[in-house]
Simulated assay, not measured.
Amino acid sequence: MTEPPFVPRERLFEKQQFFQSIHKHTYLKGPMDKITSVAIPAALAATSIALIAQGIYNMSHGIGKKE
Results as ranks from 00 to 15, higher is better:
residue 1 M to K: 05
residue 1 M to Q: 03
residue 1 M to A: 14
residue 3 E to H: 02
residue 4 P to G: 05
residue 5 P to F: 11
residue 5 P to Y: 04
residue 5 P to K: 14
residue 5 P to L: 11
residue 5 P to W: 08
residue 6 F to V: 02
residue 6 F to G: 01
residue 6 F to C: 01
residue 7 V to R: 13
residue 7 V to D: 11
residue 8 P to Q: 03
residue 8 P to N: 05
residue 9 R to F: 01
residue 9 R to L: 00
residue 10 E to K: 12
residue 10 E to F: 09
residue 10 E to W: 09
residue 11 R to L: 02
residue 11 R to C: 00
residue 12 L to R: 15
residue 12 L to G: 13
residue 13 F to K: 15
residue 13 F to H: 15
residue 14 E to W: 01
residue 14 E to I: 07
residue 14 E to Q: 11
residue 16 Q to E: 09
residue 16 Q to A: 09
residue 16 Q to P: 00
residue 17 Q to S: 06
residue 17 Q to V: 00
residue 17 Q to T: 02
residue 18 F to P: 01
residue 20 Q to W: 03
residue 22 I to W: 10
residue 22 I to H: 13
residue 23 H to T: 11
residue 23 H to W: 11
residue 23 H to A: 14
residue 23 H to R: 13
residue 23 H to S: 09
residue 24 K to N: 14
residue 24 K to Y: 08
residue 25 H to Y: 12
residue 25 H to G: 15
residue 25 H to I: 05
residue 26 T to M: 14
residue 28 L to E: 13
residue 28 L to C: 06
residue 28 L to V: 09
residue 29 K to I: 01
residue 30 G to W: 06
residue 30 G to L: 07
residue 30 G to E: 03
residue 31 P to F: 05
residue 31 P to M: 03
residue 32 M to T: 11
residue 32 M to S: 12
residue 33 D to A: 07
residue 33 D to N: 10
residue 34 K to G: 12
residue 34 K to H: 13
residue 34 K to P: 00
residue 34 K to L: 00
residue 34 K to M: 02
residue 34 K to E: 07
residue 35 I to K: 13
residue 35 I to M: 07
residue 35 I to H: 14
residue 35 I to T: 15
residue 35 I to G: 10
residue 36 T to A: 10
residue 36 T to I: 06
residue 37 S to E: 10
residue 37 S to G: 09
residue 37 S to P: 03
residue 38 V to A: 06
residue 38 V to W: 11
residue 38 V to P: 02
residue 38 V to H: 15
residue 39 A to L: 06
residue 39 A to K: 14
residue 39 A to Y: 13
residue 40 I to R: 14
residue 40 I to T: 10
residue 40 I to A: 06
residue 40 I to H: 12
residue 42 A to P: 00
residue 42 A to D: 04
residue 42 A to F: 00
residue 44 L to E: 15
residue 45 A to M: 04
residue 45 A to P: 00
residue 46 A to G: 10
residue 46 A to F: 03
residue 46 A to W: 07
residue 46 A to Y: 08
residue 47 T to D: 10
residue 47 T to C: 04
residue 48 S to V: 04
residue 48 S to D: 08
residue 48 S to Q: 04
residue 48 S to P: 01
residue 48 S to W: 10
residue 48 S to F: 05
residue 49 I to S: 09
residue 50 A to D: 05
residue 50 A to H: 09
residue 50 A to S: 08
residue 50 A to K: 08
residue 53 A to P: 00
residue 53 A to G: 02
residue 54 Q to R: 12
residue 54 Q to E: 06
residue 54 Q to V: 02
residue 55 G to T: 11
residue 56 I to R: 08
residue 57 Y to Q: 08
residue 57 Y to V: 01
residue 58 N to G: 07
residue 60 S to G: 06
residue 60 S to Y: 01
residue 60 S to E: 10
residue 61 H to F: 04
residue 61 H to G: 03
residue 61 H to W: 03
residue 62 G to W: 00
residue 63 I to V: 08
residue 63 I to H: 05
residue 63 I to N: 12
residue 64 G to R: 04
residue 65 K to D: 15
residue 65 K to A: 15
residue 67 E to K: 14
residue 67 E to G: 12
residue 67 E to L: 12
